[in-house]
Design a protein around this nucleic acid. Sequence first.
DNA 1: GGGTGGATCACACCAAAGTATGACCCGAAC
DNA 2: GTTCGGGTCATACTTTGGTGTGATCCACCC
Lengths: 208, 208
Amino acid sequence: MLSQINDKAIVHVVDDDASMRGALEGLFDSVGLDAHTYATARDFLAAGLADKPGCIVIDIRLPDMNGLDFQAQLIDIGVRLPVVMMTGYGDITMSVRAMKRGAIDFLPKPFHDQDMLDAVMAAIERDRQRRTVEGDISQLQQRFGTLSARELQVMQLVTAGKMNKQVANDLGISEITVKIHRGAAMRKMGAKTLADLVRMAEAVKPKG
Amino acid sequence: MLSQINDKAIVHVVDDDASMRGALEGLFDSVGLDAHTYATARDFLAAGLADKPGCIVIDIRLPDMNGLDFQAQLIDIGVRLPVVMMTGYGDITMSVRAMKRGAIDFLPKPFHDQDMLDAVMAAIERDRQRRTVEGDISQLQQRFGTLSARELQVMQLVTAGKMNKQVANDLGISEITVKIHRGAAMRKMGAKTLADLVRMAEAVKPKG
DNA sequence: GGGTGGATCACACCAAAGTATGACCCGAAC
DNA sequence: GTTCGGGTCATACTTTGGTGTGATCCACCC
C-alpha cells in the first residue's frame, strides 16, 4: 500500500488502434517508461492496475465507450490516475469538457512525440505528488485509527484549544482522566508537543 | 480593500465586435449582473477595475492582442480575475492552452446564452471564494505585521512546539522575557489559545 | 529634554499541564 | 473463570505556562 509510492510509474494507453498502441509503446519504451496498452476501457479496468502509480492515455474513440465517458467513469469509481486525452476527430467542446474534468492535456492527432511525452511526464509527476500528500495523510489516519473513542474525543477538544478541565466538563469526566487520555493520544499519534497534535488534527480534517 | 468582498461582481467583456459586446451586456443585464465592455485589452487595463470582484470574458481575436496572450499577461501582472474565453475560429490547441492556464470555460461562437451565463456564474463564484480565503489570510498577515521582531521570533519557535525555556535558550534571552513576548504575540494575534496560534501560523506559512 | 515604544530581566504567585502509583469496574475474548 | 484492554478516578508531585509589578536600558522623535 505504501510501497506504491516507490513503484515505477506505468503509462496505460487505451486506444482501439493497434498501430497507435504500438507506436506509443515504442515511444514510451524509448524514454524508459513502462507502458501497458489496451484496446478497450474494459480491458484496462480488468487489468486491475488502476491503483498503481502512473497515468492513463485515452483515445476519445473507443470500441466500448466514449473516451470522455470513460474519463468520467474513472472519476466515479475513484480511479485518480491523471488522464491524457488524445483524439483524431475531436472538437473544442470535447477538449474543454475533458480539461474541466481535470485532464492533464488533450492532444489532437497527429501530435508530436515530444508533446505526448511532456503531457505524460507532467501527469506522472502530478500523480506522484498526490500520492505523497495522500500517503502522509493516510499514515496519520492510520494512527488516528488506533485511538480509542475517548482518546479521540479528548484529542479533538484539546486541539480545539480547550483546557483539560473544560474537556472534563464537556465529557462529564474528571480532569485526571482527561490527562490520561490526552497523554495516550499524544503517544499513539507520535506527537511530542501540542503544536504537533494540532497540526495533525488540521491535516486530517480537511481531507474527509 | 476588505470591502471588495462585498462589492457587486462585475463582468468584464473584452471583444472587438461591438454587436457582441452589446448582446453580452444585454444578456448579463437581464440576469442582474453588472457588465462592463471593452473593445481592446488595453481598454480593460486602463479602466483599472482589475482588482474588483468579478470575472472577465475574453474573445480570442482582439485588435491589439491575441486573447491567449492577454490571458497570459493578466496572470503575469497579477490580475487574478477568472477568465472565460470565447472565440469564433479557435481550435483545440487554443482551448487546451487556455484551460491549462486556468480558464473557467472556453466557448466557441455561437454559444448558447445559458452556457455563457453558467460559465460566468462559475467564474464569479470562484472569484468570491478566492477572495474570501485570501481575505482571511491577509487579515492574519496584517496582524502579523503588528508583531515586533522578537515577538515574531518567539511565536515561530513556540508554534514549532518548543517550550519557553528552549526558546529562551535558542534566542539567548531569559525565559521570563520569552513569556512576555509570547503573551504579547497572543494578544496581538487575537489568539486565545496556543492551538489558535498554531493554526494561524499554519494558515500564513503555506501562502507566502 | 522629555516622551514613546521595544527589549530586557527579577520576584512572586497562581493556574495548568504532565507523570507516576495504585485502584476499581466492566465487557469481551480465550 | 481468568486475562486483557478500555475507562474511570484519587493522591501526590514536578514542570510549564501565564500574569502582574517594577525596573533598567536604548533608540527615536518632537
